[in-house]
Design a protein around this nucleic acid. Structure first.
Length: 490
RNA sequence: CGGGGUAUAGCGUAGUCCGGUUAGCGCGCCUGCUUUGGGAGCAGGAGGUCGUAGGUUCGAAUCCUACUACCCCGACCA
């Protein structure tokens, strides 16, 4: 492979880009800002999708699919929503090409101009609420719990593989409820689902909270979020869940007849996570040796590398290796036997390490004699020789340990990099070092903006539960009811 | 979209200032032999319209103009 990886210390963003491209997760495409997700990267995304989809279904949601294109007029119906997205929309104006009459090439046929221009969805609230109007008449039609897996387009100035691309993949849930309380409960429930997914599956600890009004989703009454800390000390928003109040119901006239026979507007939520989670995954666990993927999401959980000197030895080793593979698969593990004869073992070790496979088994003639295998863990890079007897269970246990260890390491890192700060001087020093800063804030948008202008730090979230300890704003000195989390963010 | 940089084989690069043989090297790739418990060795071989389009010149990777893409830094954002 001969792949040189930049170190995290030397150049964190180069390290990230190297990792994503050289581990075959994704690459830049011919289209500016858009990426090609390669098979190995897509397999991880599919793992994420599968787990999330199960969790959505388990909480009563169904999948559906709405169009890629949104009539421009829909878009302008909810005022703050348009304002939030207008600056980054791709617009379809024509529907036909023709041969250039002046010579070579192909040009837009100006005669084929659309009556009404179409927006390529940056999110689907408008088209969905326009549709829901026809689906909802009675309280009996509620709650309506729908999710869709889709691509969306946001015309970003600067893009980075997975973290911010012009087109990205995501899921967006859109629900309608009878009461405000039910809608809030839904938004909070989905936040819990996201947090559980991040922590249990991605082994990535997250903070839960709500956004300040400034950082709220365009059109939302309240935005709940999970935030994770990356290894370079920057925060990353990993998922959001919005309580939309009756904003979209009113904009799209979605009413239902209540039990009391009264026309009422429905209450709404929306929630989403995107392929950005891939970036979060990479930046949470990986090291200077390459990717580290938590076992629960790894496309390959165990790779078996045969060691041999000649064809006869290969055959003997391969028989044993296939036996091991089969019995591990019977335990539900995803196993690859790397029997390529074109690469040497050392090469394979490095390659699978680079790709973040959690556990590697090496098996050679010596092992056949001794009834052993060599097992190496990706998270700790430790190797040990294990007896073949009971190997399946040992590997199941090791994978569980790896999953736990990755979470614990990330949690320890976050704890070490979260600081209570009570003075502005201290804030200025600490923000340069990275990490979360827990500080008092007077609750005003002005202060928030000034802090952002002076330090590039934003309020990542306001904790869900007030710790009940009032104080003084770190910037203005005015009274504050609770501490909030600040950080520089992706 | 502003400021700066880069563009030569799949990847990394030399050559560009000062125009002049057949554009060189490493990795990777192909063939063969030897190898195989942490990125193999030797031998032979394939692969380039020098980002694109114009221009200057007897002659352009090299000089000029425009465009495009990518990287870094800002503004915007999940």
């Amino acid at each position: 492979m001969a792949k040189e990886l930049s170190s995290r210390e030397d150049n964190y963003s180069q390290w990230y880009t190297d990792l994503v491209t050289k581990a075959d997760l994704a690459e830049n495409s011919a289209v500016r800002g858009c990426m090609v997700i390669k098979p190995y990267g897509y397999a991880i995304w599919e793992s994420m999708q599968a787990a999330l989809d199960r969790m959505f279904k388990d909480t009563g949601h169904q999948n559906a699919y709405f169009p890629l294109f949104i009539p421009k007029s829909f878009f302008s119906k909810e005022a703050s929503h348009v304002e939030g997205f207008a600056k980054e929309c791709a617009v379809v104006t024509h529907y036909r090409l023709k041969n250039d009459p002046n010579g070579k090439g192909i040009v837009v046929d100006e005669d084929a101009k659309l009556e009404e221009e179409l927006i390529v969805r940056p999110t689907s609230e408008t088209i969905i609420w326009d549709t829901y109007r026809n689906w909802i008449q009675s309280y009996r039609d509620l709650p309506l719990l729908i999710n869709q897996w889709a691509n969306v387009v946001r015309w970003e100035m600067r893009t980075r593989l997975f973290l911010r691309t012009t087109e990205f993949l995501w899921q967006e849930g859109h629900t309608a409820h009878e009461t405000m309380g039910e809608a809030i409960a839904e938004a909070e429930q989905m936040l819990r689902v996201y947090a559980e997914f991040a922590e249990e599956w991605m082994a990535m600890p997250v903070l839960r909270g709500v956004k300040s009004p400034n950082e709220r989703f365009a059109g939302a009454v309240e935005t709940y979020c999970i935030e994770a800390l990356m290894q370079d000390g920057k925060a990353l928003q990993a998922g959001t869940s919005h309580f939309l109040g009756q904003n979209f119901a009113k904009a799209f006239d979605v009413k239902f007849l209540s039990k009391e026979n009264k026309q009422e507007y429905v209450w709404a939520t929306s929630w989403g996570v995107s392929t950005r989670l891939m970036g979060a995954l990479v930046m949470s666990h990986s090291d200077d040796h390459g990717l580290v993927i938590p076992p629960k999401l790894a496309p390959i959980q165990v790779v078996i590398v045969p060691i041999y000197r000649n064809a006869e030895q290969l055959e003997m080793v391969a028989v044993k290796a296939r036996e091991i593979k089969k019995s591990l698969e019977a335990r539900g593990l995803r196993v690859k036997f790397d029997d390529r004869d074109t690469q040497k073992p050392g090469f394979k070790f490095t390659e699978w390490e680079f790709k973040g496979v959690p556990v590697r088994i090496a098996i050679g003639p010596r092992d056949l004699e001794n009834e052993t295998v060599e097992v190496a863990r990706r998270d700790t890079l430790e190797k040990e020789v294990l007896q073949m007897t009971g190997l399946d269970q040992k590997l199941v246990n090791i994978l569980e340990q790896v999953q736990k260890n990755l979470f614990q390491k990330a949690l320890d890192f976050r704890n070490l990099n979260t600081f209570k700060v009570d003075s502005w001087d201290e804030f200025l020093v600490q923000i340069e070092k990275g990490g979360f800063i827990l500080a008092h804030w007077d609750g005003t948008a002005e202060t928030e903006q000034k802090i952002k202008d002076e330090t590039k730090a934003t309020i990542r979230l306001i904790p869900l539960t007030n710790d009940g300890k009032p104080g003084k704003c770190v910037y203005s000195g005015k009274p504050s009811t609770q501490r909030v989390y600040f950080a520089r963010a992706y």
